[in-house]
Nucleic acid binder design. Sequence first.
DNA 1: CAGTATCCGGTCGGATACTG
DNA 2: CAGTATCCGACCGGATACTG
Lengths: 131, 131
Amino acid sequence: MRDEGGHAGVAASCRPITDILTRVGDKWSVMVVILLGNGTKRFNEMRRLIGGISQRMLTLTLRGLERDGLVTRTVFPTVPPRVDYALTDLGRSLLVPISALGAWAHGHRDAIDAARLAFDARVDANAAQDS
Amino acid sequence: MRDEGGHAGVAASCRPITDILTRVGDKWSVMVVILLGNGTKRFNEMRRLIGGISQRMLTLTLRGLERDGLVTRTVFPTVPPRVDYALTDLGRSLLVPISALGAWAHGHRDAIDAARLAFDARVDANAAQDS
DNA sequence: CAGTATCCGGTCGGATACTG
DNA sequence: CAGTATCCGACCGGATACTG
């Protein structure tokens, strides 16, 4: 019982993981979660803090996180309107493994950059040889 | 020093994390890494085990992981050709936070599904009201 | 067996304009 | 302020055909 016995169950057992990773692995979700990790924020406040995200994408990202129960959206019926976003308990619990992955990414950043440079150099060398 | 002081540094500090997550958050990378996590595999062997991935995507996924120094590719100049894929030390170290995230995903799967159902029901109810 | 090459539909995400 | 609506280019990923 090591790696054999894999009919199609491998894909099935990874489905939830991949599912989460595609939610959190998109262009902005992690940044939003981490940002909300240190406090409630308003819409345009996040927009400014992130700097580079479009209105549309911030809305879509927040809606996705809200749908998954990671973020709450609180509307104050004032004028001008005010909407607060915050992490739920579920969202805060996600912060733990996300931070672990973040720490890994930060810690191995140089190694990855070096690997990329080496790989690209090797590819370029091969391409030049095929002239 | 809590959440203020964010000019544009938030995006910068999340760049490596997002970078890793877009690599690992694509459709197949996690599955491939976990699969290689319990041993060296050959190309078509992985293709069968994953079941559902196209030849093209498996190639691209493996090339990406190889480029980042997470996977090694060993070609045996035999006939028919044989190519072995395995995790590097870096790749194995990634397995740790990935597994943590996997455990989180697995553990909170029901909560997320429930949140989605509730959210969709709420949206449907609002849509019906706007008839 | 282990790829590469090409085509092509679907989705992601930015830009812009408009609204309560 | 906090969105929605629309358009559109870029990229992702599957299907298919071909190769050493």
